[in-house]
C-alpha cells in the first residue's frame, strides 16, 4: 500500500527532526559563552508550531538527552530539560494547531477566528505581559538579597523587561484589532503573543530549576533561598533574550518550518486514487 500511516513518522520527518536536534545543540553551544543569550527557545517554538506537539515532544526529548554528550551528564539538568522542553513543545505545538485551524503546516484562517476568540486571546496575552511586568516591578521595588555587584545590572534588565511588557501588551492589542482588516497584522500579533508566552516559559524554567535544586543536592531552606535569588542573574537576561529573539525571528522561522512541514508530510491521495494504487 502506498504511503504511511496518517500519524506515523515518515523518513523525511525523521531526518528533519534529527537535523533539528543537531541545530538545537549547536545553537546552544554557539551562544554558551554569552550569558543570557540563547536560540533554542525560538527554534523549538517555531518548529513545534509547524510540526505539531507530537513531533515537538520527540525533538525536545532527543535534544534533552543528546545534549548531554556535549555538555556533560547531570541528573538535575536532564530531569529539568525533559520536563520543561516537553511541556514547551506541547504548549506551542497545541497553540500552532489552534491558530492554524486544525493541522500542522496548513495555512492560517484568513480572518483569524471569531471576535470572541480574538478578545480571549487579547486578554490571555495581556495577562501574560502583565505577569512579566509584575515580575519586573517586584524586582525593581524590592531590595533583592543578591550580590551587590549584580544589583545594578539586574535592575536595568528589570526596567527593560517592564518596558517590553508594556509595549508588548499595547502592540498585541493593536495588532489584533488591526488584523480584522489587515491579515498581515495577524502574523505580527502571533509573533508578539508567542514572545510573551516564551518569556513566561523562560521564567517557569528558572522556577523549575529552583525547585529541583534542593531536591537533587539536599540543600536546606537557606541554601534553596540563596539559589533562588542567585537565579535572577540568569533568569532576567534569558527572559529579555526570549522576547527579542522571538520578535526578530518568528516570522522568517515560521515560514521556513511551515514549508518544511508541508514537504515532510506524505502526499494525501483522494480515496479513489488510493484504491487504484492498491
Amino acid at each position: 500500500m502506498r504511503g504511511v500511516a496518517q500519524n506515523g513518522l515518515n523518513g523525511r520527518e525523521i531526518a528533519f527532526i534529527s537535523v533539528m536536534v543537531a541545530f538545537l545543540i549547536g545553537g546552544q553551544a554557539l551562544f554558551a559563552a554569552v550569558p543570557g543569550v540563547e536560540i533554542v527557545t525560538v527554534l523549538l517554538l517555531c518548529f513545534s508550531r509547524a510540526f505539531g506537539p507530537g513531533r515537538g515532544v520527540l525533538t525536545a526529548t532527543a535534544y534533552s538527552l543528546l545534549r548531554c554528550f556535549f555538555f556533560g551528564f547531570d541528573a538535575k539538568t536532564i530531569v529539568l530539560y525533559l520536563i520543561y522542553f516537553n511541556f514547551f513543545a506541547c504548549f506551542f505545538g497545541w497553540s500552532g494547531r489552534l491558530s492554524a485551524g486544525g493541522g500542522c503546516g496548513e495555512r492560517a484562517e484568513a480572518d483569524g477566528g471569531s471576535p470572541r476568540r480574538k478578545i480571549l486571546s487579547v486578554v490571555a496575552v495581556d495577562l501574560l505581559f502583565a505577569g512579566l511586568g509584575a515580575v519586573a516591578a517586584a524586582v525593581l521595588l524590592c531590595d533583592l538579597p543578591i550580590s551587590m555587584l549584580l544589583r545594578t545590572g539586574i535592575k536595568i534588565l528589570a526596567w527593560v523587561l517592564l518596558f517590553l511588557s508594556a509595549m508588548g501588551g499595547v502592540a498585541y492589542s493593536a495588532l489584533t484589532a488591526l488584523s480584522v482588516r489587515h491579515a498581515a497584522c495577524r502574523t505580527a500579533a502571533q509573533a508578539v503573543g508567542c514572545a510573551a508566552a516564551a518569556a513566561v516559559c523562560t521564567v517557569l524554567f528558572t522556577l523549575l530549576d529552583d525547585a529541583l535544586y534542593p531536591l537533587f543536592f539536599g540543600a536546606g531552606r537557606e541554601g534553596a533561598i540563596a539559589y533562588f535569588y542567585a537565579s535572577f542573574t540568569a533568569m532576567l537576561p534569558q527572559t529579555v533574550c526570549a522576547v527579542v529573539s522571538v520578535l526578530f525571528l518568528f516570522v522568517p522561522l515560521r515560514g521556513f518550518f511551515a514549508r518544511a512541514a508541508r514537504r515532510c508530510r506524505p502526499r494525501r491521495l483522494p480515496p479513489y486514487r488510493a484504491q487504484e494504487e492498491r
Binding site: 509595549m167 502592540a171 498581515a184 505580527a188 509573533a191 508578539v192 520578535l247 518568528f250 516570522v251
Partner: peptide, 11 residues
C-alpha cells in the same frame, strides 16, 4: 507592513 511593524518593535 508586517515586517516593518515587527522589525520596528524588535529594533
Amino acid at each position: 507592513m508586517l515586517l516593518v511593524i515587527l522589525i520596528s518593535f524588535a529594533l
